[in-house]
Amino acid sequence: MSTETTLSILGSGIYLPPARPVCEVAAEAGADVSNYQGWPNVCHALAEDHPSTMGATALKAALADAGVAPDELRLVLFAGISRDYLPSFSVATEIMQSCGAQGHCLGLDMTIGCLGALSALDMAQGWLATHGGGVAAIVTAERWSYTVDHGSMASMGLWAHGDGASAAVVAMDTPHPAKAMFRGAEFTTQSDLNGTVLVKYGGTRHPVAPAGANPAERLFMGSSRADIRERYAYGYSSSLEAMKKRFGIAPKRVIINQTAALFLHLIAQVINIPIEDFLLTGPETGHVGSADLLIGLDRMLKSGPCHEPYLLASSTPYAFGAGLLMPPTPG
């Protein structure tokens, strides 16, 4: 890939509501927590927190970190699952309005589960290359803890799914200094796993939930957990191999979705990178869905300069991606 189509990471920002111990939340809901082995804490949204408000807070922080004015934005991609209202309400456009982006900026909502941030980086790279460069923003925000039945043992794997937001300001062919460079990503899809985690009600197939049901509850459907582990292992390994083949670089450090504590140990074995070289935010935040990847990126960039390649690894049950983050080009 030519340097002209490499995406500069200019700045990052996050918004995280207060965290609570997962076992405390589940016990209050009446669950037996004696066998729980997941992330110890989870962020739960405050009453006034919504995807657009949390996302706007994260983007304002990212713009300040980048030293970029809102009127420079040409594209705002919102890549979260959660939304304030059903479409055609645009979370991206609401965030644009809150942050002061102007009419020459396009706000676009895209949804691909927890793979959203990596997909949005890839999309911003292509969009800016096609449109002659400029500045774009990627925003991810989730408010989904309320969709989890914390009293259900069947939902134990979802107890640590938490709320929050993250953002990155990116650019191509501008004078702004880069903190890191996004080279690109490779993806693989297993389409038969679509609907593995399902919000059953609210769409055209089941518009209204029956009386007494939580219309927003997420359900684990279909495949056994053993099969899911095997399929995830293949998805992560195949996308990583495609990325390494494309760029000829094998990163030794990882920024990844914080799906579950034990799950990351499995992925570490599959891709043959020690878990000690994974950047972990799950112990403090839980799994914040699409926001995880940029929360990790923000932590890495705020800890010091990027000096080596990082694997950006991300997934949703039916799709997997591996991206390459590099140190900024000298000069």
Rank of each mutant, 00 (worst) to 15 (best):
T259A: 08
Q37E: 07
L297Q: 02
A185T: 14
G203L: 06
A26N: 10
A165S: 12
L59R: 05
L10A: 09
G195K: 03
H44M: 08
A136P: 11
L46I: 06
M123Q: 08
L301R: 08
R20G: 01
L118P: 04
I95D: 04
P18T: 10
W39T: 08
D149Y: 13
M300A: 09
S12K: 01
V254W: 00
V288K: 03
A69I: 00
I112A: 15
M1A: 10
R225K: 02
A62W: 01
V68S: 00
G132W: 06
E72Q: 13
L10M: 06
C99K: 06
A167Y: 04
T140K: 12
A261H: 05
F278L: 07
M96G: 00
C114K: 08
A137I: 14
H44R: 15
L325P: 08
P215N: 10
A167P: 10
A129T: 14
S238G: 00
G134D: 08
T316N: 12
G157A: 15
M153E: 15
I249H: 05
A242Y: 01
E284A: 09
T53D: 03
P207E: 12
W144N: 15
S191I: 10
H307Q: 13
T316C: 11
T285Y: 02
L266D: 05
M326D: 13
S239R: 01
E230Y: 06
H150W: 15
S238V: 06
C306V: 14
A185R: 13
M300W: 02
A117P: 04
L75C: 09
T204G: 06
A136M: 14
A31G: 08
A31M: 10
D192W: 03
N214Q: 14
P305V: 03
L86E: 07
K179L: 14
W144T: 15
H104E: 14
G13Y: 01
A92V: 04
L75V: 10
P18Q: 02
P21A: 14
G116I: 11
S2F: 04
A62C: 08
F263H: 10
S155M: 13
E48P: 05
Y15D: 05
G162Y: 07
L118N: 13
I81P: 02
R74A: 12
I81R: 03
